[in-house]
Nucleic acid binder design. Structure first.
Lengths: 353, 353
DNA sequence: CTGAAAGCGCTTACAG
DNA sequence: CTGAAAGCGCTTACAG
């Protein structure tokens, strides 16, 4: 039936010849155009399966000036928070008919640049970027500027860079936690972990610090310890903290992933986590509720951020001239045992009241 | 300088005209061919940056019959085990100069089919597949057969499907755990969680069961409870187990992710995890050592599996006719408190000795 | 060392 | 409802 020899690719030409129509008609059948009669469609489709034709989307996309492909650059998906984000973005993109070109920057600027170039050169229709810490507006302009490619930033901002953005209200998240810790009677606190150059870290810390200060509680700047945004990072930072002297009333971790390392390290050092020192995180990843003690945290809804980022991007692709949109999701406090079982506050109030 | 108007794409033609050479020469400059003089290269490159030229890799790839793109289909990256795998594959592919086209099947067959088609139609050079549970050789043949695309399976096998494969020795992993549990004096055990249709589950359970039976310990088949390969799955399965009556001496979870759910659920029901019932998992994800109690498990080295899978695929692309290779990594037992603190065995031996 | 021509596998107006 | 022609942005022999 098919004359396609061993190595030869079967193309639209073979199908056209075999079914006695033009290539244009085959092309229309491929997209199920109603400009082709049902009879012709059936005949052409039969030939397609008979000769084992496989559509070449790249060729189609080149000609049609689109890719039906979105680029996604995240930092590291071993972080459960980013895993949730990635899954949500993939689902949403996939539902909208897009395929995903993926890259991980490992939170390293040079890697991110390489990935950005690769995606631009592959002419993705749009780009979702979780900026590596240290990303600057100038850097982005250099890599993305000339291409004018549609893109949205998520989870971390880049100050001065005009683009759509989706993220949590990190300042608010810090405030929520501050208010709760004040309620618990906390008087001293450390802010542990997270990458120094990330907007999320700055904002969470700022929200926390400012709000604590309103109640006369001051975070000793020497107790602000950056780290990788991972459990391992949390462990390292906590070891440092333990070396610096007596523990504060509360340890606020940059994220739940970091908090996981905080808790493990404290426990290894015989600290009674929760009772002796209150611990809290950010994000409310699934594991937070399963920590022992269960972790107080502020939910930042990665799934919703992912879905929204994908939607914003698709909207942006449809209307490149629209004003930039920023979607800031409101965080929610989740109170659990890691702060409520703290007994320092009780002791203190016992003395006072 | 450039005459490219607002919307027009700047192509190799513009660069050729502007720098007074042919398109062929520009093309050679792009690939830094030594068939072009240094002077010409410099002149052409200067023009490229001046006019803001951006290479179109899609067009190049179409013509050159390659994509420099690999397809990766995993199930769900919220599972830390798959996250490690994915990161390793991405690193390796990226280092070899490939970009990754990504899709998650959510362990659902239909989704996997759609993703496979998309990747074949995008003409990826090769494909890495973590098969959804229930994947059959016939199904794969149907989707991949006609395309003859290079691919490797990893982490789970598909019986009867001829392809390269990389995975852990799951039977051995089960045996290692069985031997250890026997040493601890365990007499009854349950196998909890994991997707029914996955080869990894079957093999782990078989290795465990057979080896236990050698020592006269029999797993009650009604205590083999499948679930999603997630922490949530482990929680559901454990709730079921608790309803079935008295707990066995040991609970072996399909994976550490599942074990995490087992531990949390037992604790919620007031069970003293470790002492009252031994718990173990598979994979040795980073969190296993941080569980409370620390989780005994069998390391299966997802990172090595990922790296190896990418390498096998690249080798396969270079030599499509080579015999199929199977890389089976040897697992290693990691003994921790979740089994060693079990006191049932000690009690019993006290009585016997 | 450089160029003219053909072509990768499709889609897109334009006719009829 | 269908076809002939041009073209997407590159690379690849083939000449010279």
């Amino acid at each position: 039936m098919s004359q396609g020899g061993a190595g030869r690719r079967i193309t639209i030409n073979d199908v056209a010849r075999e079914s006695q129509v033009s290539r244009a008609t085959v092309s229309l059948v491929l997209r199920d155009s109603n400009r082709v009669s049902v009879a012709t469609k059936e005949r052409v489709r039969k030939v397609m399966t008979d000769v084992g034709y496989v559509y070449d989307r790249r060729a189609a996309n080149l000609r049609a000036h689109r890719a039906m492909t979105l680029g996604l650059i995240a930092t590291d998906v071993r972080n459960p928070y980013f895993a949730e984000l990635t899954m949500a973005i993939e689902s949403e993109a996939s539902q909208a008919g897009y395929t995903l070109l993926l890259g991980y920057s490992h939170d390293v600027l040079e890697q991110q640049e390489r990935l950005l170039s690769a995606m631009v050169e592959n002419r993705v229709d749009g780009l979702l970027l979780l900026p590596a810490s240290g990303t600057t507006a100038r850097g982005l302009a250099r890599t993305l500027g000339t291409s004018g490619i549609a893109h949205v930033l998520f989870a971390r901002r880049v100050t001065g860079h005009g683009a759509d953005y989706v993220g949590a209200d990190n300042v608010k998240a810090g405030q929520l936690l501050a208010d709760h810790l004040i309620d618990q009677g906390v008087r001293t606190a450390a802010f542990v972990g997270g990458p120094r150059g990330s907007s999320a870290r700055r904002e969470r810390e700022r929200g926390l610090t400012k709000q604590l200060e309103k109640h006369g509680v001051r975070i000793d700047p020497s107790l602000s310890l950056p780290s990788e945004a991972s459990t391992a990072g949390g462990m390292t930072a906590t070891s440092e903290l333990l070396e610096r002297g007596p523990l504060p009333d509360a340890i606020v971790a940059y994220s739940d992933a970091v908090a996981s390392g905080v808790i493990a390290t404290l426990r290894r050092h015989g600290v009674d986590v929760g009772e002796q020192v209150a611990v809290a995180g950010f994000d409310d990843i699934p594991q937070a509720a399963l920590e022992h003690p269960a972790l107080t945290t502020v939910a930042t809804f990665p799934e919703r951020i992912g879905v929204e980022a994908a939607r914003l991007l698709i909207a942006r692709m449809e209307d490149p001239q629209a004003d930039y949109r920023r979607t800031i999701l409101s965080p929610e406090l989740r109170v659990r045992a890691s702060t409520t079982s703290w007994i320092g506050g009780a002791r203190r109030s016992d003395g006072v009241t």
